[in-house]
Structure formats: structure tokens, C-alpha cells
Nucleic acid binder design. Sequence first.
DNA 1: ATACAAATTTAAAATCGTTACAAATTTGTA
DNA 2: TACAAATTTGTAACGATTTTAAATTTGTAT
Lengths: 136, 136
Amino acid sequence: MEEYKKILIAKGIKPTFQRIKILEYLSRNRTHPTVDMIYTALFKKVPTLSKTTVYNTLDILRENGLVDVLTITESEMRYEYCTEPHHHFLCRRCGRIIDLDVKCPYLEKMKFGEHKLEQIHGYFKGICKDCLEEAQ
Amino acid sequence: MEEYKKILIAKGIKPTFQRIKILEYLSRNRTHPTVDMIYTALFKKVPTLSKTTVYNTLDILRENGLVDVLTITESEMRYEYCTEPHHHFLCRRCGRIIDLDVKCPYLEKMKFGEHKLEQIHGYFKGICKDCLEEAQ
DNA sequence: ATACAAATTTAAAATCGTTACAAATTTGTA
DNA sequence: TACAAATTTGTAACGATTTTAAATTTGTAT
Ligand SMILES: [Mn+2]
Ligand SMILES: [Mn+2]
Ligand SMILES: [Zn+2]
Ligand SMILES: [Zn+2]
């Protein structure tokens, strides 16, 4: 609670209860949740919460570099607490999005050719280890 | 026309007029169009075309490995005629999606760790060369 | 050719994630 | 306490996609 309040203040974002809770949720749940997952989880604790606030807050957090957005699935956006750049694996069976420890030269240099590079997304898709085992 | 008819037949897909036209369009327009772009362009030539047919056909083409789908933007899917795997650059200024010639070891091996890897998407995002120049 | 079943196309409605909007509430300051 | 600004909220609008069922086309048996 206090920790996330400080983070918001450091970024010049007014640390409202909702913003703190959303940032805290993302920091504690490294599952790349959808907006609806965030909303549903927090609504239990904050029954006045509006989904619009989740959208608004995520936009603010994103603008301030506290949150990253993944376009890895075909229907909804995924959000994650911003850390070091890394790649992701999406399992088409269970839908989980798993952080990968991929050695990618571009991730560090953030430089490529003549274009101005701002983000790199590495999306690996297939069947995850657990689902493979489950199917024997 | 005949060329794409043959490709469809080779895949066991009934080569209807609409399917041929959609496949032909994707082969000739390597711009990673949206469904709406495909529909709007073809509607001029095929005024009876339905957007549902575009969706249906793209699904079939995708299932048969003739078309790839990109989830690079935040709102709609992008389609491309299937070629050798390659990465992409999305310009947030002009919206163009540019094919990249990135050396990626994973693209060739298609193997990574303990998961079963089926696809790799490399999405680079930023400002393209042309837009940079245009802004001096 | 004709009839009929299956496949395909089409148009319309439904769904769902996201955005726009305006009212209600909260916050900061005088 | 009063008031303006910022934030939150609920609702409506939007747009991409999916669902559904009717219309059309195709292939095949007669
Ligand atoms: Mn991650
Ligand atoms: Mn491409
Ligand atoms: Zn899985
Ligand atoms: Zn550009």
C-alpha cells in the first residue's frame, strides 16, 4: 500500500485509493491479466470500483512507464507491471502467458536499422509444458 | 486467378470466386491489411461480397497455412499472405506495418525450451524512417 | 434436364472489449 | 465553509468479431 503510494507520487500521479490498488494488484499478480480480471478481482475489495476507472488508471500508469501492454492475444489487451523487457509465451490450450528468459540482442540495444525503435514484443505461441504433460 | 485457384485446390479448399479473390488480394497486397481493408478493396470488384465471407475465408486460409495473422495492433487483426517467417515493425505515427529482415535464431529453429513452439511473432514498435524524415 | 442435399454466401443480430460522455463524488485550496 | 479542479462512476456509444438463419450456389443422383 505505502510502497505503491510512493511509486505513484514519485511519478507525479495523485495516489488515489483506486490507483494504488490497481498498481498493487499488477505488482502482486504477474499473470498478465486482462482489464476484466483486474476489475473482477479488485471489485471484491472495492465494491464501488468502476471498470472505467480501471481503464483510465491503466492508461495513466502506461503513460508513466509503470505498466506495459501486451497485444499477444486476439481479443483483449494484457497488462503487466513494468520490469526489465522480456519475451512471452502464450499457450493456446490453457491461455496462460508465461514470461520467457530469451536472449534477444534487440531487447538490450533497443536499436534497429533506420526506424526509431521504442518497444519490442516477442510473442512465442504454442502449447505450454504443463499442457503437454497433461496430455501425456 | 488461375494461380490462386490451383493453390486452393492443392490444399483441398473449394476454389470459389470469393476465396480466389481474397487469396489473390493478400498475395498482391503485402501491407498486412485489416478485414475491413480487404473487404472494402474487393467490394469494388465484387459488390455482392459480404464481410462475413471475408472472415470465413480468412479462417479457412489460416487453418490451411495460407495466411498468417498478426496481433500487432491494439484493435484489429492483420492478415498476410504466408511466406517465410519474419518480424514486423509498427509505426505509431503512420500505422504502417513493415516487414523486417531480423536475424532471429528462434525463427529458424522454431524450438524453445520445454514448451511446444508453433509460432513466433516479433513486433517492433516506434516511428518509421519515413515519418522521422517527414518531421525533419 | 430435374430434383435434392450439401456447401457456401449473405445479411442481420448478438457479443464483447473499449471509448466517450456527463453526472456524482472527492480533493485541494482560499 | 465555499468553491474549483480532479477523479470516479454509470451509461451509452462504438467497432471488431461471432453467431445465426435464410438465400444462393454447387455437386450428385435420378
Ligand atoms: Mn511478462
Ligand atoms: Mn509481414
Ligand atoms: Zn498450457
Ligand atoms: Zn510511419
